[in-house]
């Protein structure tokens, strides 16, 4: 029965918090925080005075608080938000009002199909641009494996080598080679310079 979505009706008011696993639809008023693992949707007459956190948020009402979505966040044409928005993918419809910082960071969820770029409506250029930035950010995470086998010749690579040597240490061969090279090369260089 966990699939039953919860709802707060039109003329309902909750002074307090909502937490737990499941989805929630708000058509009334909530004066408190909403923290659920599922999706949260706000109707156009909904009012929430407090932060909202969920997987996918679709907001078409008023919110005074921060919105945090682990999957996606979309603001409808009647949305009025005073607070910060953060989600891997954010869409803001024409007519929505927002006052706050907007952050699209794809760092938290490691999903194979990130930020669905399908929502490239005109009013949401911000969401589109960061989403592209997110995609290229992942490839660099994978390359360290390729870098690992040959850490010595690429001392220029700033952060990647740090991760590389650790897994490589198990495969014994590389480290000794590196040390030997360093000692030898240093000695030769010093001697040759002097």
């Amino acid at each position: 029965m966990a699939s039953t979505t919860s709802s707060i009706g039109h003329n309902s008011t909750l002074r307090g918090n909502v937490r737990g696993e499941g989805s929630l639809a708000v058509y009334g008023r909530v004066e408190g925080e909403i923290q659920v693992t599922g999706d949260v949707s706000l109707g156009d007459e909904a009012v929430v005075l407090g932060g909202i956190a969920g997987a996918q948020l679709s907001i078409d009402g008023q919110v005074q608080g921060d919105l945090r979505a682990s999957a996606a966040l979309s603001l409808g044409p009647h949305a009025r938000v005073i607070g910060d928005l953060s989600a891997p993918s954010i869409s803001i419809a024409d007519g929505a009002l927002v006052r706050g910082a907007v952050t699209t960071d794809g760092s938290a969820p490691a999903r194979p199909t990130p930020a669905p770029a399908a929502r490239t409506s005109a009013p949401a250029p911000r969401a589109a641009a960061p989403a592209r930035a997110v995609a290229p950010a992942r490839p660099p995470a994978a390359p360290p494996r390729a870098v690992a086998p040959a850490p010595a010749p690429t001392p220029k690579a700033s952060t990647a080598p740090v991760k590389g040597p650790a897994p490589a240490a198990k495969a014994a061969p590389p480290p000794p080679v590196v040390r030997a090279l360093r000692k030898g090369t240093k000695a030769k260089q010093k001697s040759s310079r002097r």
């Binding site: 039109h10 937490r19 737990g20 696993e21």
Partner: peptide
Amino acid sequence: MAGTVIGEGLSFEGELTCDDE
């Protein structure tokens, strides 16, 4: 919208006021 529903897994804490089911 059948009033207010608190689904399984969710917990509401506070004062809930409605005029419906």
